[in-house]
Design a binder for these strands. Sequence first.
DNA 1: ACCGTTTCGTTTGTAATCCAACCGATTTGT
DNA 2: ACAAATCGGTTGGATTACAAACGAAACGGT
Lengths: 227, 227
Amino acid sequence: MKNIFPSTKSSPLFAGIGNDDFDNMLDCLGARLCAYAKDETIYFAGDTVAEIGLAVSGRLHLVKDDIWGNTSLVAEVTPPELFAEAVVCGNLGKIPVSVIAKEESEVLFIDYKRVVTSCSSACVFHSKLIRNMISILALKNIMMAAKMEHITKRTTKEKLLSYLAEQARQKGGKAFDIPFNRQELADYLSVERSALSAEMSKLKAGGVMDYRKNHFEMLIETSERTD
Amino acid sequence: MKNIFPSTKSSPLFAGIGNDDFDNMLDCLGARLCAYAKDETIYFAGDTVAEIGLAVSGRLHLVKDDIWGNTSLVAEVTPPELFAEAVVCGNLGKIPVSVIAKEESEVLFIDYKRVVTSCSSACVFHSKLIRNMISILALKNIMMAAKMEHITKRTTKEKLLSYLAEQARQKGGKAFDIPFNRQELADYLSVERSALSAEMSKLKAGGVMDYRKNHFEMLIETSERTD
DNA sequence: ACCGTTTCGTTTGTAATCCAACCGATTTGT
DNA sequence: ACAAATCGGTTGGATTACAAACGAAACGGT
């Protein structure tokens, strides 16, 4: 099998597993490396899946078609990201989205059962893999829960402040940088970029915070804001 | 220890583990049962946590305080639900919410390390517990991803149709029941109940769907809707 | 059958967002 | 240095959601 270590070693799934063990592990797991042409469909929505997918090269799209035939992009998967891991680990069986290669791509398929089942040779990496898998799912949970908390707010201003407050808490101070530009932040909070800019300007004018590009500084402490 | 089997056996965490193994398992895991008075704080946000919490009796609130001192309810936890499981399984260490008993409550704390570490007596339920834990996290992922997809839509109508389309797909037909009343559905989609009712009426009048109480029937197949 | 409660649909005025367009500032490539 | 592209802020009109209130229907208990 082609040496996929360089393009997948940074996956959290393989954290703590060195180059020496790598090939043995893939053998033990019976991992398959598959290649796909541009626009080739890897899974159709509703297909039965039992393997975790790991993007090795290229770029994949997860798309969903509703009952009226409208198709929408759910996510883009680039190396070394996983896909279908929640469906497989949750024993759902059927994948709710279609997976399409948007470029010439390679995917490593890993049988979930062989991850959680100790093999006869008692490989050392099984428990490490399992802990990594749990960690991946748990962190994804936390990230989604955080995002959900922002998005469920009613107004653009509330969504923005919810996000900024969380960033301030995470970064441990009132001054911090965010990893988004305006458009990306608007997409993340699912609001309009223009409305977001407008709210930011108002908050700056109101003395609630200051910012320049991606650097923010929260100014008001404990007091009723002028909403 | 008090027999907590009746109130926790239905937890997915213990799926496939019988009454006979139950007490042995709790011993092996070193599980602690703690009692709390009404309004007692179990965790303060920022506390270091290493144990998964399982609500045994009572009712817990997960609350979040932002940097301005505003406090908001994130979730309510009732038996036999888990809490702090994502933080612990993700090795985050610090819990981002405070946990408060809103009634006299009991909580079973389970050390995560002892779940994923095989014990000296090679208990049979470790691998089962681990698989259950993975399944719980994965299913929560899927549920949150589905909800996110609805909520990120712009208008109430789009959110509603996104939800109904998914229900139709899940139930495998154009006619199905939903597990929410109007207010609950509005909360789930984070929209106004009145706006939701109005949109539903319009969709019924437009021949897109029919409904009575919690029973829905999608009528239009593939065609451009009159948006 | 009666009454209180809950649920659902509807309406109306107010507030907020969306959308499109525009402009200035900054960055990038040549 | 120049042109093109990107990014961020602003504006105005159309659209949509919000909040509150009301009545009708359904439900449950007595």
